[in-house]
């Protein structure tokens, strides 16, 4: 052990951890240092992982039905010649706020010749940017890393450039009721993975 400091101390240096008291002091010190941090870290880590409950009297029409479907449009609003963008509107729980009629996300809807409706998530499966339909090429393009998709959602190769998306555009379930209301089962998927995995 080095003996650089003044050694007027009454007890001889027996090394840093040379006594039981030293070990005990280190232990108590460590516990004290960690204690308050643990209390804070518990909140920091556990709260985001917790299932949040909506207010007791929140209105039923402000959230998805039991199967996760949201009403987005009337089928009359959906065209056959090109996809149209629709916003999912519902009541949103954001930390302490509960806010009615908030945009949760967006989808592209299009009808085929038979009147069947297809629905695509606007989030690019590559890295989560928002894809947009472009009329010139009649395809979906992502503004970030050149991912492009045909109207059926499959990957499109554009003039020699690469298409980094690991999978086609994410298709969502569609339901139409007798009053022409179109419902979408709106879910988010993890991006960057080969398979569609719900968040």
């Amino acid at each position: 052990m080095s003996d650089t400091t003044n050694s007027s101390g009454g007890e001889s240096r027996r090394g840093f951890f040379g006594s039981f008291s030293a070990w005990l002091a280190a232990l108590v010190g460590a516990v004290l240092g960690v204690g308050p941090v643990c209390v804070g870290l518990y909140s920091f880590i556990m709260d985001p992982l917790r299932e949040k409950t909506r207010p007791r009297k929140s209105r039923a029409e402000g959230s998805a039905d039991a199967n996760g479907f949201y009403r987005v449009a009337s089928s009359d609003e959906i065209s056959t010649d090109k996809p149209r963008r629709f916003t999912i509107v519902a009541d949103k729980l954001d930390a302490w706020n509960f806010i009615e009629n908030q945009a949760l996300g967006a989808v592209y809807l299009q009808k085929n010749e038979n009147g069947d409706i297809s629905c695509f998530h606007t989030t690019c499966p590559h890295a989560g940017c928002s894809v947009a339909y472009e009329q010139d090429s009649n395809a979906y393009h992502c503004p970030c890393h050149n991912s492009s998709f045909k109207l059926d959602g499959s990957k499109l190769d554009v003039g020699g450039s690469t298409n980094p998306s690991p999978r086609p555009l994410d298709k969502l379930d569609v339901k139409v009721d007798d009053d022409n209301n179109v419902y979408i089962r709106y879910v988010d998927y993890y991006t960057g993975k080969h398979d569609k995995i719900e968040k």
Binding site: G9, F16, S21, A25, A26, G29
Partner: peptide, 11 residues
């Protein structure tokens, strides 16, 4: 007798 701060006073 004198003592060092470590370990007794720390404890």
């Amino acid at each position: 007798a004198d003592q060092m701060f470590w370990p007794m006073q720390v404890l």
